[in-house]
Design a protein around this nucleic acid. Structure first.
Lengths: 174, 174
DNA sequence: AGCCTGTCTGACACCGGCGTAACTACTCGG
DNA sequence: CCGAGTAGTTACGCCGGTGTCAGACAGGCT
């Protein structure tokens, strides 16, 4: 298989090493409707799933939530909110409050929520997630089966990431 | 300072109905060293555990975290941080970031963390926790065996929340 | 076609976090 | 001193989420 050749999406094992999850997790999440591949689903043994760039982004968010000790049930709600979220995700923060999810654009918005709300807030800064994901993709393309951690090159040089799904990187994070 | 402090503390089943957890949870948490009663531990069948007011506060924080879908492992770290915190917990926010815990006194502090941090933030406004806990204690004393398990949407209009029983609420909430 | 390799699939097992149900031990009123 | 009630303890099992492993299958290569 050619690591730099086909641009038609990402297959299961590729997704696993890019996002940093196990194949069992990816499979379980696809079977339980947490996140199914948007480009092509498996139709039996031997076929292959194809994930888009935005799929990877959602998977990365899920992994971050799991690493932070958040339950998969909350991750399901987060994914649902991300899909409605629109296009400029890199500058927003995903906020989970008891029973609801929303995208906060500014820090002051979060402070307002903290003042009035009772309950626990789970907040995911999406800019960092996008950064990590792009760096992991670039590292994977340069060395698919080797050391995954490489220096962070500007992903804008790669042109098209996955056709039409690539998000333009915003510069500032504040 | 603590409601109910005039007596010798809170016993297991009382704690369960005040905090809103099951006896099995309380027992499991005591056995796995998440939170052991600080006043008296069980020394065999028939004896009884005695929990202090600050025990109840920690238990309430744990329950809030669980309700928000946070794993028990994170709750263990949160408890450790709460014990190191000062006395004025009611004005602070408990913040869990990947691998670390801290108490943030102001909203701006949280915004600063959000700017630079990469990872998921779990934030617990402790003022709301104290409110709910005091209200539950007052409700329990007026109707010890009557009150069913109340939902998270505390009535709040109980009136004499701070009537000689609760901690003095210092900071405005909105 | 036959082989090889990569990928999906199914069955089994494991562990954390409890629920349920018995059992046990202490306390209290009489 | 004895029965009732209460509270802690043990035993067993369930369920969600994964690791492990063997098996099934598509597609490319010879």
């Amino acid at each position: 298989m050619a690591p730099g050749g086909s641009e038609s999406g990402f297959r299961g094992p590729q997704v696993c090493s890019i996002v940093g999850i196990t194949y069992r997790q990816l499979d379980y999440w696809a079977r339980t409707d947490l996140l199914r591949p948007s480009l092509a689903e498996a139709r039996g043994s031997g076929t292959q799933r194809l994930y888009s760039y935005s799929d990877l982004l959602e998977l990365k968010v899920i992994k971050q939530l799991l690493d932070a000790g958040v339950h998969l049930r909350e991750a399901r709600r987060a994914v649902a909110c991300l899909r409605e979220g629109g296009d400029d995700l890199a500058t927003a923060n995903l906020v989970l409050v008891g029973g609801g999810t929303l995208l906060a654009r500014s820090g002051e918005e979060i402070v307002d929520l903290l003042r009035g709300g009772q309950g626990v807030f789970n907040i995911v800064p999406l800019a960092g997630v996008v950064d990590e994901l792009d760096a992991a993709i670039v590292a994977f393309r340069s060395a698919p089966g080797d050391e995954p951690v490489r220096r962070q090159t500007a992903p804008g040089a790669t042109g098209d990431l996955t056709g039409g799904a690539a998000l333009p990187r915003a510069a500032g994070e504040s």
